[in-house]
């Protein structure tokens, strides 16, 4: 049960985080930028990304080994060998970009600084694009495990 909660919780937090990133980008495109909102959104995104790191990391380190052993022997072995391998390393790129977000938001006067606005939008777009890839990769890995267990082709 605990394993399933962790497994479902991390993409759920990721989806909410993606919505916050969209909100951040839209907030920066407004004529009158609400600086406090931009700062709170940036901080929330960073904190949620750290929580994903801890939750998904714990699940990956403690529980994934069992599924991996089955997936790599199945016809969907690429779901681990390609998608998990890329996902687990691209995640760190997103983590670094997310940790950088609040620093930009809190150290600059966002409403009056076009460079800071442009930088935050750039970070937001990069984070969003990479998170969409990670989310898709997660779905493929999940389906890979499903096929491996259902067809038992990874258990032989």
């Amino acid at each position: 049960m605990f394993e399933s909660i962790l497994l479902l919780l991390h993409p759920a937090i990721a989806v909410v985080t993606m919505l916050l990133v969209v909100w951040l980008i839209v907030s920066l495109k407004c004529v009158n930028i609400n600086e406090r909102r931009v700062r709170m959104l940036s901080l929330s995104i960073a904190l949620m990304m750290v929580s994903i790191w801890i939750i998904a990391g714990y699940w990956y380190v403690v529980f994934y080994g069992v599924d991996k052993a089955v997936i790599v022997k199945s016809s969907w072995s690429f779901s681990h060998s390609f998608f998990m391998e890329t996902k687990e390393h691209i995640f760190f790129v997103v983590l670094i970009l997310s940790l950088y977000l609040p620093l930009v938001a809190f150290r600059n006067s966002i409403a009056n600084n076009t460079s800071a606005q442009k930088l935050l939008i750039t970070l937001g777009v990069l984070i969003l694009a990479l998170m969409l890839y990670i989310d898709g990769a997660g779905a493929i890995i999940s389906h890979g495990a499903e096929i491996a267990y259902m067809h038992k082709d990874g258990l032989q």
Binding site: V93, I96, T114
Partner: peptide, 22 residues
Amino acid sequence: NTQLDKYTLGFGISAAIVILFN
């Protein structure tokens, strides 16, 4: 204003380097 704070620049360069280091 278009001037970025020194920590924004410093940590921005750091982020770019760490992404490649990763």
